[in-house]
């Protein structure tokens, strides 16, 4: 399967948040108790029960007193996913055929390392500390459907499809900034912007964590170290032999 992507176009988003409700419904996620904090935006952050949310931003505008921006936020589904690299459990985070970074709570050990490794800080956990984040509706996409948020989006602000095609369409429609196109091996969630991503509060220069990168490069040293030491010990035993004084006997029954 070609790599698929979710294209977010905040220019088309009307902040209706059908995506948030649809996500909760499809994934059977519980509600989070919130208060009004002096904004339409809620919940205040992604949670293990909120795989996506719309960030509401009021920014200065040349034409009016302000612009009101609505920016979908969720796991970016990195092509080179630090979360997958750091995950100690086999199969807890895996790459789906469509390129999404998907989780298996049954295999998640709840160590939350992925949360620390995520360059965007977008991974959240459920009450049992298991990874709980956008999976681009793995169950739906596997069955040939679009993610629930995309299905619900009334304005076309969320689109799901062939990553290259979506990128080309966005460029053709005049979106000069395709955020995520080249970052981290290319993200599976792309943002079509006409202005700088900074205006939309996007992370500048997301970077793969050096610690994870470096360790991945040297982790085979563990095998090497173990193997070499065992081998050296054996060699020592054969070549130099045990530390035995003359006349000393070793009896098993001692």
């Amino acid at each position: 399967m070609a790599r698929m992507a979710l294209l977010v176009s905040p220019e088309l988003c009307i902040g209706c948040r059908g995506c948030q409700s649809a996500c909760k419904e499809w994934n059977g996620l519980p509600a989070v108790k919130t208060v009004n904090r002096g904004t339409f935006e809620n919940p205040p952050d992604l949670t293990g029960a909120d795989y996506n949310r719309i960030r509401f931003m009021e920014v200065p505008s040349a034409q009016d007193a302000q612009r009101w921006l609505f920016v979908s936020q969720r796991c970016m589904h990195c092509g080179d996913a630090a979360c997958m690299k750091i995950c100690p459990s086999s199969g807890a985070l895996f790459r789906a055929k469509n390129g999404a970074v998907v989780f298996d709570k049954g295999k998640c050990i709840g160590c939350k390392l992925c949360g620390s490794a995520c360059p965007y800080g977008l991974i959240r956990f459920d009450q049992a500390n298991k990874v709980s984040k956008c999976h681009l509706c793995h169950d739906r996409t596997e069955a040939g459907l679009t993610p629930a948020c995309v299905k619900t989006c009334p304005s076309g602000a969320l689109k799901y499809g062939d990553r290259d095609k979506l990128a080309a369409e966005a460029s053709a429609a005049g979106y000069s900034n395709l955020y995520g196109e080249a970052d981290l091996g290319g993200t599976g969630v792309l943002y079509a912007f006409k202005d700088s991503p900074k205006v939309y509060g996007m992370l500048q220069n997301p970077a793969f964590p050096a610690e994870v990168h470096f360790w991945s490069g040297i982790k085979s040293l563990a095998y090497l170290g173990l193997g070499a030491t065992v081998a050296a010990s054996a060699l020592h035993y054969l070549v130099i032999g045990p530390h035995k004084e003359e006349g000393e006997e070793v009896k098993k029954d001692e």
């Binding site: 948030q20 409700s21 909760k24 009004n36 904090r37 002096g38 339409f40 809620n42 909120d50």
Partner: peptide, 29 residues
């Protein structure tokens, strides 16, 4: 519907920064 209440939990009033300044009101008050 708890999902909807999560999104818009409470009665609110929208007002300008000028009026809020006059009345010493801050967002979330």
């Amino acid at each position: 519907l708890p999902w909807q209440m999560e999104l818009q939990p409470q009665q609110f009033v929208e007002l300008s920064t000028e009026l809020a300044g006059q009345k010493d009101i801050k967002s979330g008050d």
